[in-house]
Design a protein around this nucleic acid. Structure first.
Lengths: 185, 185
DNA sequence: ATGAAATTATAATGATCGTTCTATCTAAAG
DNA sequence: CTTTAGATAGAACGATCATTATAATTTCAT
């Protein structure tokens, strides 16, 4: 089964182009050229440009969670530091141009609810993940910790656009270590 | 002199629309309709869509510095806390949809150098401002402080998109207070 | 009131947008 | 070999894109 080798080519190049230039800035034509795929092949796999974007976001989200899951070990002494390190690795691999979910929210809020919700739900899921992690690790106020961790992670993502992922990652880890001392168990 | 009342209408509505939906997502037609302006009036004041965007970014940058200048007082005991508070106020007033400069970088990097440079220069100028502020306040390593402050500010901006400016601002200020204790003079 | 400057309306430009249709072709499964 | 599904090329759709040309109109200081 050559099952969907073409579909994955579309998803890969579309994700790359959308991430590098924005969703509205990239037309289907450019995707088709770079992916070496015919227009009808795209519409055979996806019902519209918006639905293609939805699949890309869902796929990217599951990839992000793979990074977190592989770095954060059950019952770790410093789970939040592992979260930051996972995020920094994510930035190094495919986060040099900001957060694709926030960018989807920014471009489609008030226009395409489906796309906006996928992005927004991901962020809320991340907040809940951090809250649960704090609670599970015996921290006092998991609410504030989850918020501050989010500020830290999103800040590192933006900072990576300005001075690169390694510099941003180094500072994010340093900040996390400082903040960890202020969080009481 | 009714000097450029129309020009300002264009700048105002264009900035609002670009910020809410993105630069490529908004066509000139929508700007003209909302600003009640004829197409030739726009091209009389701006040579192209890109040049309009450039002026918007420059204007927005000077507005941002007004916030910083009005909050950060010369020789303050805690200048960085004032920076954070200035930034939080900025978020409350016109920062509910991310950082417009980062978004300009993301949409135009590799496509329009002029626009990209305006945005990137602003970020570098902010980094230098924070570095100078740290040095002037007698902090040991202004380099790291500037980086971490940037992570904090940009993180608050992104966080404001997810949970609103007040929640993001509250956490950013709390984080700043924690970090301040770790920075040695 | 006059003259200059700014704004307007309208239409046309060529390019590109997302999407659909038709028809041909390739490739694998039975 | 034949069937079937997937991919292809190419054209067409109407809509919108940024930009320009032309010409009429309004605004405003003198």
């Amino acid at each position: 089964m050559s099952r969907s080798i073409k579909k994955e080519a579309i998803l890969d190049t579309a994700e790359s182009l959308f991430y590098d230039h924005g969703f509205h800035a990239i037309g289907l034509k450019k995707i088709l050229e770079e992916a070496n795929v015919a227009i009808m092949t795209l519409y055979n796999h996806f019902s519209s440009k918006e639905q293609l974007i939805e699949e890309i976001l869902k796929r990217r989200e599951s990839q992000y969670w793979l990074y977190l899951d592989s770095f954060v070990e059950e019952g770790s002494a410093s789970p939040f530091l592992q979260v930051v390190k996972a995020h920094v690795n994510w930035l190094n691999d495919k986060g040099k141009n900001g957060c694709m979910f926030l960018r989807a929210m920014e471009e489609f809020a008030g226009t395409d609810n489906q796309i906006e919700n996928i992005a927004r739900n991901h962020k809320n899921k991340l907040l809940k993940y951090l809250r649960d992690l704090g609670q599970k690790s015996g921290y006092a106020n998991d609410e504030d910790i989850a918020f501050q961790m989010t500020v830290l992670l999103e800040g590192a993502t933006s900072m990576a656009e300005i001075v690169g992922p390694q510099q941003a990652g180094k500072q994010a880890i340093s900040m996390a270590q400082s903040l960890l001392n202020t969080w009481r168990r």
